[in-house]
Every structure is written in C-alpha cells, then in structure tokens.
Design a protein around this nucleic acid. Structure first.
Length: 383
DNA sequence: GGAAAACGCGTCCGCAATAC
DNA sequence: GTATTGCGGACGCGTTTTCC
C-alpha cells in the first residue's frame, strides 16, 4: 500500500503526495522553483488553465430586455415565433429565428448534462462578425435591414440601452449586441492573441459548464446548442491545437476525487475562477502507459458516455453508439472484481446514475492508485 | 410567532488592462 | 488615443436565521 504522506493546504494537513503523480508534467520551470506536489525539481503540475479558459456565459446589457419569455413578450406556436413590438405580436421570419437562442439558468445544470425542459427563455443574440464593415452605423443599418422585427423590438428600448453603455464608457452604438461572452481573446497557434467567436462553440461544440456560485463539483456537458448568462461558467479550449478528451475530463471533474479536492483546497466557486484555474490539477492522459491503465480509462469514458446519453435521452432509447460502448465496458469488466461487476449490471438494468457514478469513482481511485478508505477517513476527520 | 438582521445569489456596473 | 475585453465588486432582492 502507498506510503501516506501529508501535504499542507490552508494550515491543515492532508492528502497523499503520490496523488500528484498523474498530474505532473515534465517541464522546465527555470528559477521559479520546484514542483509543489512531488519531489522532482524540474517537473510541474498540469492545471486547469493549461487546457481551459473559464469565462462567464453571455453578459447582456440588460437581461430583462434581451431575454424573451414565453407568454410575456414572446409566443411560440408550432415552431413559429411571435414577438411583442409596440403592443402587438409580430411573426418572425426564418432568418430572424436563428438569432433567438434557447437560454438556460445555472440551476438546470446537472452532472454530465442539464435539464432540457428547464430553459428560462430566449436570448436575442446578434453577432458582430456577421456584418463585414468597418463603420458601426453601416453595420447597424445592415442589421436592421436583415432583421427588421428583432431590431424594432430592441429599438423600443434603445434609449435605455444606450444610457447603460455610455455609463459604462462603452460604445452606445453596440446596443444590439451582448456586452461580454460572445468573443474571447486567446493565444493563437503562433503566440499571437486572436479573437475567438464563441457563437459556433455555444451552438455545436463539446463544452463543459458549471454554476457561477456553487460549492459542489457539478459539471454539465453539451455538444449541441447550450446558451447561458453570467450565472454560468463555461470551459473554453485555451489552445486549438491541444486536443481535449472531453469525456475523460468530464468524468474526472464530476468524480469523488475532485469532490475531495474541492474540500481540501477550499475551492468553493464564488466569483473566483483563479482558484479553480490554478488549484485544480488535470491528469495527463499520456502519463498512463500500461494496458491496465488504458483499459480503465476506456471504461471510465464508456461509462461517462452512458451518463451523458441517459441525461440526453432521459433514460430513453439506447442508441447504436451507446450499445457499442456498453459492449466495450462488458468486454473489459475483467479489471473489476465480482462485486463491482454485479453492481454494474444492476446499474445498467435500472439506469441508475448513482451506481454508475460509484463505479467511475472506484475506477479513478484504481487508476490513480489511491486508497479510497483513507480518503474517506480524511474527509470524516477534517470535514 | 413576528420583526429584524444576516446571508445567499444573480445582475450588471465600471475601472483596469491590453491591443491596435 | 480609441476600442475592446477582463474582472472584481456594488447593489438589490429574496430567503433563511436569529432574537426577543
């Protein structure tokens, strides 16, 4: 069994030094000192901010104007949208419908997904990139011609919106657009800053998100359209060249290991993403070489895929994709003991997310060679 | 049991930092 | 200097807790 060595955070001692082995990346840190987590002097830990940029969702000039609510200023009937302009409801053309984005509040976020039925309304989302012109007033004119109804709707509140922007020393002519959360500056391939348009990422990329204010490690996931406002943090890929294994990371973030780290590192998320970016180690997949380790990782991913699918389909149909993953899990069950195998079959039968989560936790402990009982003991002792 | 105080949470304000 | 995003925090409202 592992030699238990304690580490110090916030004046308390806990944790294995060995924990950090899967996270340590060989990298020269010059004179900055040694890696805080293991004895190597030239290695350092891989953290969150080497993979992700954490950003709030959309920050609108005024939510009550930009978020349309069914029954109040929006009517949805048989896939047709009617929006309230000067007291009457006007039907939106097809092209205008593309500017309405179904919006979720952070309370709809669940581990591995979100509650699809729980959307709060529709956000009006115009994209500055759509209009290829240098002049701001020309751009607004083009927008008004292309989207006559939506722009008329916003024009009702133009004065109020402009005042807010002027007050914030921002360009009042941008009153049609989200203030933040639609573009981010990020380091490009050649170490040059580039502006990343987030609309296609919100619409269709894989993405992980979590509540702006929370002390639990609940991380949601979507690979289809998911929009939220500033009460949600999104994890955007920091480097386009660095491939991110979303299923594995998602499983890891929702696991008991991270739950433990949240506790020991006091990582309650409340208006401080820095702690999270620099405090959470990310396991380096390449550091797992053995066949057994690869097998465990494969099973973790397959189980995570099941959980994502259960969320999406609400325990419904098992697709071909899922069937394939399930077969893979069954084939690889030899790494689990008898007791776990029977648990696993029970979980599949009952579509029980908790049991699948339990299994994922077990597999992570196995992968990282961590003694789960000692972790339990530490949690009981300190929290 | 009711009033007052404290707290939690979401919104969005506005200065700081940075690019051009 | 201007334009734009980043980020901390003020503010306000609703909920919970405390106090008498």
């Amino acid at each position: 069994m592992l030699n238990l060595k304690f580490y110090y955070f916030h004046g308390k001692s806990y944790g294995y030094k060995e924990w950090y082995k899967p996270f340590c990346v060989k990298r020269s840190v010059g004179n900055k000192g040694k890696c805080p987590f293991c004895e190597c002097k030239e290695e350092r830990i891989e953290t969150f901010d080497n993979y992700f940029l954490i950003r709030n969702g959309l920050i609108l000039i005024k939510d009550s104007i930009f978020i349309l609510h069914e029954g109040i200023n929006l009517i949805v009937q048989n896939d047709e949208y009617f929006i309230s302009v000067n007291g009457e409801f006007i039907k939106l053309a097809e092209i205008e419908k593309t500017r309405l984005k179904k919006l979720y509040k952070s309370k709809s976020i669940k581990p591995y997904g979100y509650d699809k039925e729980d959307h709060t309304g529709y956000a009006i989302y115009f994209n500055k990139n759509e209009f290829n012109t240098q002049s701001v007033s020309k751009r607004n004119n083009l927008l008004e011609m292309k989207y006559p109804i939506l722009s008329k709707y916003l024009k009702q509140y133009e004065k109020q919106l402009r005042e807010i922007l002027i007050n914030a020393k921002e360009n009042p002519a941008n009153f049609y657009f989200p203030r933040r959360g639609s573009f981010i500056n990020k380091l490009g391939e050649n170490h040059k800053e580039e502006l990343l348009d987030l609309e296609p990422l919100y619409d269709q990329s894989e993405k992980i998100f979590f509540k702006f204010i929370s002390n639990e490690n609940i991380f949601g996931y979507s690979n289809t359209s998911y929009y939220a406002t500033s009460d949600t943090y999104f994890l955007w890929p920091r480097f386009s060249s660095k491939k991110i294994d979303y299923l594995f990371i998602l499983a890891y973030l929702n696991s008991k290991i991270i739950n433990f780290l949240f506790k020991v590192k006091n990582l309650s998320i409340k208006r401080s993403k820095t702690k999270l970016e620099q405090g959470l180690p990310i396991p380096i997949l390449k550091s797992f070489h053995s066949e057994n380790e690869k097998l465990i990782i494969g099973v973790i991913k397959a189980l995570t895929f099941c959980l994502v699918k259960f969320n999406e389909l609400d325990y419904g149909i098992i697709t071909e994709d899922l069937r394939e993953k399930l077969t893979q899990v069954k084939d690889n069950l030899s790494i689990l003991n008898e007791k776990l195998i029977s648990k696993f079959y029970l979980a599949l039968e009952k579509k029980d997310r908790n049991i699948i989560q339990f299994l994922i936790n077990k597999l992570f402990f196995q992968l990282f060679s961590i003694d789960e009982d000692k972790i339990e003991l530490l949690i009981k002792k300190f929290y």
